[in-house]
Design a protein around this nucleic acid. Structure first.
Length: 205
DNA sequence: CCGAGGATTATCT
DNA sequence: GATAATCCTCGGA
């Protein structure tokens, strides 16, 4: 396993909170149809897990939208939020256990010019500092929903990166939850980010 | 700098 | 019919 090898399925089979923490520092790789290659370091994630988690699409029961969350770990779950924004998640936990990890922010490492082409006119730190910003930057959309991210076949996968020590990791409540979400889920510290990283989506409490 | 409000549509109730 | 795991712009301080 090197800097290019996709993380294996058994990695994603762990609990979503474990996967979310472990994905910090990992490398999101995007290979465009035209051959353009983009690599970016994951700096912020959120976990959504279980049928009881009121913040999760996997709450209650299966629906056409959340079906990927009940499926095989390591697949993409991409959905449209607010009618406009595509958000990228990776399915976690075994089949029938609805869970996913939302990729909230990444730090561009390679293919800067390909990102700039889609994020033109903005400050560089705003290119990928948010769940929808990064899907725009990496040209990810509904077409990627359900694709297997443990293979390089679909041009979208995650490879191992340099480990991030606990001393550099921060946690807090998840962001942007709907008003129907109540405690304890509202305050559940299931958001992870790398301290002081300029690409984290918002001020760190 | 900060807060408010609009965009825009698939999905669920 | 209402809502939403967000982003951007605009107006005011």
């Amino acid at each position: 396993m090197n800097a290019w090898t996709p993380l294996p399925r058994h990695f994603y089979a762990q609990h979503a909170t474990v996967v979310a923490r472990a994905l910090l520092g990992a490398i999101l790789v995007r290979c465009l149809p035209d051959g353009a290659l983009i690599r970016a370091r994951i700096v912020e994630t959120e976990a959504y897990s279980g049928k009881d988690d009121l913040a999760s699409h996997g709450r209650a029961k299966r629906t056409p939208r959340n079906l990927p969350m009940y499926g095989e770990p390591g697949h993409a779950y991409v959905y449209l939020a607010y009618g406009i924004h595509w958000l990228l998640n990776v399915v976690a936990e075994p089949v029938d256990s609805p869970a996913a990890v939302l990729i909230r922010a990444v730090e561009p490492l390679e293919g800067i010019e390909h990102i700039a082409a889609r994020r033109n006119g903005r400050a560089q730190r705003e290119w990928t500092s948010g769940p929808s910003r990064l899907t725009i930057a990496l040209a990810i959309n509904g077409a990627h929903n359900k694709l297997d991210m443990t293979t390089t076949a679909h041009g979208l996968w995650i490879a191992a990166g340099e480990a991030v020590p606990d001393s550099a990791v921060r946690t807090g409540a998840r962001i942007g939850l709907g008003k129907r979400v109540t405690e304890p889920w509202l305050s559940m510290p299931w958001r992870w980010w790398i301290a002081d990283n300029p690409y984290v989506s918002r001020a760190q409490p």
